[in-house]
Write a protein that binds this DNA or RNA. Structure first.
Lengths: 131, 131
DNA sequence: CCGGATCCTCTGAGATACTG
DNA sequence: CAGTATCTCAGAGGATCCGG
């Protein structure tokens, strides 16, 4: 899911959804927020591979796309919470199906991904890694 | 849908599917192939925005991931056809749902995407573009 | 705890041109 | 018609530092 350009080709749903879901961590962010409200520091802990900056950028985009809301509590220390909007919630079933598909085909997926990414690894080594 | 690195975090379906679907034109390619067999030149015509090289690269990845097969007919002029594998076919319902969601929320999507991408454009101009 | 600003890296993907 | 080899580039995303 990628489709960047707001080009002539925004004429089908597949293109449109690509625009709002585009971003390395977007889907996972939505998934975590959907479980309730979420604070930036919690999100950071759940996705340690992403830097705070990137998470902020993507959260901002999600907000601009009206998929999440950002609530600021004027306290010290600062407190911020993200929630899904009604619109954002409509995406959850979709994300769930995607995740389920991935879970169902886990083994096959791992195998083909490994086979491709680790070209220097032999078949038996792949089996070993997977076991 | 993005997730690139074959990092430690390949532990959920959401990550795994990202690996095989990652690529600007992958989903659309799968969609077109799913309607039957497809020849490279046909695909090129259906996706004129992508160059032949990029399409080839992504087709190769899809093939490596066992989502499509590539059949070569030893004739002159050369003829090649792509088909979905059984595995690839299991993705179609998912892609269909994604597309449907996008279609259902078309107007809202167009609005938020435009609002964000064309920051120099005023609200009324956006309305105008959309009308 | 939160976010913004700066600088940098790296790789997907476009452009072009060439072979069987 | 099909496929490959180079070259190039934008821009997404990472690393860091700083200020509220």
């Amino acid at each position: 899911m990628y489709v960047k350009k707001i080009a002539p080709s925004l004429n089908c749903g597949l293109d449109l959804i690509g625009e709002v879901l585009y971003g390395k961590w977007k889907i996972r962010i939505l998934w975590f927020i959907h479980e309730g409200h979420l604070r930036p520091s919690e999100l950071q802990r759940k996705i340690p591979d992403a830097t705070r900056r990137v998470l902020n950028v993507q959260l901002k985009e999600l907000e601009d796309h009206e998929l999440v809301t950002r609530t600021i509590y004027p306290v010290m220390p600062p407190k911020v919470e993200y929630h899904l909007t009604g619109f954002g919630k409509t995406l959850i079933p979709l994300i769930r199906s995607i995740g389920l598909w991935g879970d169902e085909h886990q083994e096959r997926l791992r195998r083909v991904i490994l086979k491709q990414n680790a070209l220097s690894v032999t078949e038996s080594e792949v089996d070993e890694i997977l076991s």
